Simulated assay, not measured.
Amino acid sequence: MDSSNIAILSTVINKELYKKSSQLFPSNIQKYVIDGTNGMHGLDSIIYMMKMLKDRNIDWLIMADEDVLFENPDIVFDIIKKMETQNYTVCGVRDGGLISHRKENPYVINTFFSILNFREIELIWDEKEMLKNQYCKINEFQDDVSNLNEIYDTLSIYEPYYCFYLWLRRNEKQFLFLDSNQPFQEDKITNAVYFEDKVLLYHTWYARSYGINKKHTVRINKILELLKFENKIISNAIVFKHKTFFIIKSIKKVFKRIFMRIQMK
């Protein structure tokens, strides 16, 4: 597969972990980073992503957090082939029903890993319309979620970024949902993600704690050891940082608090 129009994007809080995990990324594709050390993540990161990656000739965009550790990274190209031939726009793991500590909405995905038909989304992108979709309706979607093993809530709007995926679903874009479970007895946090019964990656969670909290550092290092990780390669990522994001966000929070106090009087 021609990888020139495929890219991978990470919103990074922990740069130390990213330096390691990015070495396990799929090969021969451009890496992009959104610097999340100023608080940018989730929905804000998606909106910023659509702005910064516009007109960069990206057909397929892989999104992977820095706590995602690939075991078989080149499987992403097989997934993209399937998405292309079967008209899928989004691929990822349901945010409810598969992972014991994610009990939220099974009709959308968690952003720790996904693959997007970026070209298709770019053509219809409308930030204002997207933001109107942070709501759920009973029985709106027809997915059969009855066989999911963990708890879920089909009406959850727990994550602010849900509106992005709900907007795509309401625009009749198709989702390819991947299987996931927690395969380790001693590690009840890490989940594996599968494609056609093969392990694609492990999501270790708690990226911000790596190198700070002993428990999570040891736990994540065990997965790196499992993957026979060797620290050799320097990342060639293109980095984006919204320099005024923290200030703007702080000002908006202050004005929101003032407005709420006025409304209560």
Rank of each mutant, 00 (worst) to 15 (best):
L123R: 12
K51F: 04
V199M: 01
R94S: 14
F184Q: 00
K198M: 04
L226I: 03
S100C: 08
Y162A: 08
S100K: 15
K15I: 10
G36K: 09
I34S: 08
K243T: 11
F25I: 07
I233N: 08
Q134L: 15
I212K: 13
N105M: 07
K128I: 09
K15G: 00
H242T: 00
K232H: 11
Q182C: 09
Q174Y: 02
Y194P: 07
K232I: 09
V239E: 11
H242K: 12
K128L: 11
K188Q: 09
I238G: 00
D2N: 15
V193R: 06
I99P: 08
I75T: 08
Y165F: 15
R219I: 03
L53E: 07
L227A: 07
E129R: 12
I247K: 15
E186N: 13
D44K: 03
Y135G: 08
N110F: 13
K253S: 06
D44T: 00
I13H: 13
E196F: 00
L17P: 05
Y18D: 05
I46F: 14
P26V: 03
K228T: 07
E150R: 11
I251C: 02
S27L: 10
D2Q: 12
P160R: 05
I79T: 09
N231H: 11
F245C: 00
S3N: 12
G92F: 08
F259E: 09
T217G: 05
V68F: 07
T204Y: 04
M49I: 00
